[in-house]
Computed example of a mutant assay.
Amino acid sequence: MSSERDIKLTVNGREYSGHAEVRMTLADFIRGELDLTGTHLGCEHGVCGACTILFNGQAVRSCLMLAVQADGANLMTVEGLANGDELHPLQAAFQQNHALQCGFCTPGMLMTAYAFLRDTPNPTEQQVREGISGNICRCTGYAPIVQAILQTSRETPSP
């Protein structure tokens, strides 16, 4: 019995097909097989949030899923936020508010914030803090991240 499976999925609007080892994580498949390296691997236990992507519209930890589970799924990674060279308003707000330092947590934080703002278009500061509480940032102290998300909620319609 082969330990590889054929999978087809849509990532950032583009269809992909390939082979995945049955034990390969979705994060490893995205990074290694699709060469979309914006999805970061931190703890590999689902705790830090660096690997957060959208899976059929829901924010998920891609390190906790197997690539074969994504067969037929629609995924969005951080590479899908920008429109060519034009940053998504959330990315622009992160830049304007200095909401990143080392940048390691940023892709997962952006994807979490994107899904959060879609579901909570006019959040309070407390709601933002709760919304991103599953993502760990060791550099910023969270204040600029919270401000960037609040700015985005005030200036743009829901994602």
Rank of each mutant, 00 (worst) to 15 (best):
S133M: 11
E155V: 11
I7V: 06
N83T: 15
L34Y: 04
Q69Y: 06
M111Q: 05
A27T: 09
A50F: 01
H98C: 06
T120F: 06
I145K: 00
T106I: 01
T140V: 03
S2R: 10
P123V: 11
G72L: 14
Q147D: 15
Y142E: 12
E79I: 12
S3E: 14
D119I: 12
R61M: 03
V60A: 02
N122V: 06
A148N: 13
A59W: 02
Y114S: 05
L110V: 01
S17W: 13
L75S: 07
C51H: 09
N74Q: 15
V68I: 13
T10C: 08
E44T: 14
T52I: 15
Y142I: 14
P157M: 13
A27I: 13
D35G: 02
Q58C: 07
G49V: 15
L66Q: 11
T25C: 04
T152I: 14
T25I: 07
D71N: 14
H45R: 15
R14C: 03
G13I: 14
H19N: 12
N56D: 14
I149P: 01
M76K: 14
T152C: 14
R5M: 10
S62H: 08
L26Y: 08
M1L: 09
A50T: 08
Y114Q: 06
Q147E: 11
E155P: 12
H98W: 07
T37L: 08
I53K: 10
A93F: 07
V68P: 00
G18W: 10
L87Q: 03
V68C: 05
T39M: 04
E79W: 04
L90W: 04
F29C: 08
N97F: 04
G108C: 04
G141M: 12
P107N: 10
E155S: 08
I136G: 02
C48L: 05
T140Q: 03
Q69P: 02
A27R: 10
V22P: 01
A82W: 13
G32F: 01
M76T: 15
S17M: 12
I132V: 06
L54T: 13
V146R: 05
A99F: 03
G42T: 07
V78Q: 06
D6W: 12
M111P: 08
G46S: 09
A115W: 05
I53Y: 01
T140N: 07
M24Q: 12
V60E: 08
D85S: 08
T106D: 00
A93W: 05
Q58M: 03
E130P: 05
N97I: 10
F94R: 03
M109F: 01
F55L: 11
A27C: 13
N97Q: 15
C139A: 04
L100K: 00
T39N: 05
T112W: 00
Y16Q: 02
L110G: 00
Q91T: 05
T112D: 04
N74R: 15
A113Y: 01
L117T: 09
L117K: 06
G103S: 10
A82E: 10
Q151H: 00
M65Q: 10
D71L: 12
I149W: 05
L81C: 00
D35L: 15
N97L: 11
A82D: 11
L117W: 01
